[in-house]
Simulated assay, not measured.
Amino acid sequence: MAQRAVACRQLEGEIGGTHRPQSFPLRVLATLLRLMAKVCHSCGKGPAFGQSRSHSMVATKRRFDPNLQKVRVLVGSAPRRVYVCTRCLKAGKVTKAA
């Protein structure tokens, strides 16, 4: 799982350009980017994992997702659509693009 995240981070910047690493076919690259975990652009908050407990206390695995919203944010000088958690939006940690 960690290797996939590292590969996605390395390849994220290269998709827009003409350079594409020869070790990743386009189909694999598209799959990697589609499976990237949704994390907050500002604070890095991602999913947490735990267990649901039924009435009989049987544990089943579950995932607690943060409340992420897709927002146009100024990254550097260019507007970019990124996921930001509502906590960061409320605190004013990001500047929205007009």
Rank of each mutant, 00 (worst) to 15 (best):
R9M: 08
R63W: 03
A48D: 01
S54E: 03
G92Q: 07
F64R: 13
A2M: 11
V94L: 01
C43R: 11
F24W: 15
C85V: 02
C43Y: 13
V71N: 10
K45Q: 15
L29H: 08
A91L: 10
T95P: 01
G17K: 08
K61D: 09
Q3F: 10
A5Q: 11
K90Q: 08
R87I: 06
V58N: 00
R63N: 05
L68I: 13
L74I: 15
G13S: 08
S54F: 07
R63Q: 12
S23I: 05
L89T: 04
R27W: 07
K45A: 13
R72Y: 13
V58Q: 01
R34D: 06
R63T: 15
K38Y: 03
V58D: 00
K38A: 12
K61E: 08
T31F: 09
V39G: 02
R53T: 04
F24S: 00
H19K: 03
G17W: 02
C40W: 12
K96F: 05
A97R: 09
A91G: 00
A78L: 08
S77M: 04
L29E: 05
Q51F: 05
M57D: 01
T86K: 14
D65H: 12
S56W: 00
M36L: 00
A78M: 05
P25Y: 09
K38S: 09
Y83M: 09
R62N: 07
F24A: 01
T95I: 06
R72F: 15
Y83A: 10
R80Y: 07
L74T: 12
G92P: 04
A48S: 06
V75S: 12
L68G: 10
R9H: 10
L32D: 04
A2K: 12
K61I: 06
S52W: 08
R20A: 02
P25F: 07
R20F: 06
H19E: 07
V39C: 11
Q10C: 05
S56T: 11
L74V: 15
S23Q: 10
L89M: 05
Q69Y: 03
P79T: 01
K45W: 07
L35G: 01
L89K: 04
G16K: 10
M1C: 09
R20I: 04
A2W: 12
G17V: 13
M1P: 09
L29W: 15
V82G: 05
V6T: 14
Q22K: 11
K61A: 12
E14A: 03
T31I: 10
R81L: 10
A48E: 04
R87S: 09
L33Q: 12
G44M: 15
A37M: 02
S42Y: 10
V82L: 13
M36E: 08
C88Q: 02
A7V: 12
F24P: 01
C88I: 02
C43A: 13
A48G: 02
